[in-house]
Nucleic acid binder design. Structure first.
Length: 204
DNA sequence: TTCAGGATGTACT
DNA sequence: GTACATCCTGAAC
């Protein structure tokens, strides 16, 4: 089933946890690229110094964080990489889940081409091991850039579902096993004072 | 396998 | 001008 607005319209930490094991689907040249989500982080503007919209700071960049839940927030980081987030909680409550990592489930040809400019068979062991284990890597493989900032997650082009049958594929048995969710401190936010210790990173 | 260093552009002070 | 929710390469071990 495709996740609807109600899924995103909840506490951001709950959404971040519940997204683990779900499938992010990106339509690309008429083909579904599907990634099983394995790592997420929560960012909550009203109380979190690590959030771009901390204390409701509203700028051109953070505007998307104030949008309806179920909106994609994509920003440029370090001048060359894009990071994908899902906007959560009520409209005008700036919060989102950063998508930090996943595993390829469908559209491997395109994912590999987008990521490394070559086919899956040509990838080195190192490239396979580090295929989608980072927010910039995931965006590159899915060809997501700031052009998609503000896009809806409830349409046909970009969405999340809990079963690969939703895109006409079979869900692997291993994906049906009980999930073990780990929590930890978020990555790369050393500047965020007390918020560096929040255990708002979730991973399988 | 780990580490240092560099790439690169924009948002915000 | 400074920092940034990152990633890759090459060298050392």
């Amino acid at each position: 089933m495709k996740l609807g607005r109600d899924f995103y319209d909840r506490d951001t930490r709950t959404v971040a946890r519940d997204l683990l094991g779900k499938y992010l689907v990106r339509m690309w040249n008429g083909v579904p690229l599907a990634v099983r989500l394995t790592e997420t982080e929560a960012y909550i503007g009203r109380m979190d110094k690590a959030c771009h919209a901390y204390n409701y700071r509203r700028t051109k960049r953070t505007e998307t964080l104030f949008a309806l839940p179920g909106t994609a927030y994509i920003y440029l980081i370090y001048g060359m990489y894009n990071c994908l987030n899902f906007v959560t909680e009520a409209e005008n409550e700036p919060a989102a889940v950063l998508i930090r990592g996943g595993e390829a489930r469908s559209g491997m040809e395109w994912l590999a081409r987008n990521r490394f400019g070559k086919g899956p068979a040509e990838l080195s062991p190192y490239q396979k091991k580090n295929f989608l284990n980072g927010p910039g890597k995931l965006c590159k493989a899915l060809a997501l850039t700031r052009r998609e900032n503000g896009a809806s997650l409830l349409g046909e082009e970009l969405f999340v579902c809990d079963d690969l049958a939703d895109i006409g594929l079979e869900t692997p048995l291993e994906d049906r096993e009980t999930l073990t969710v780990h929590t930890g401190k978020r990555i790369g936010i050393d500047y965020a004072e007390e918020a560096v210790d929040f255990l708002w990173r979730y991973y399988l």
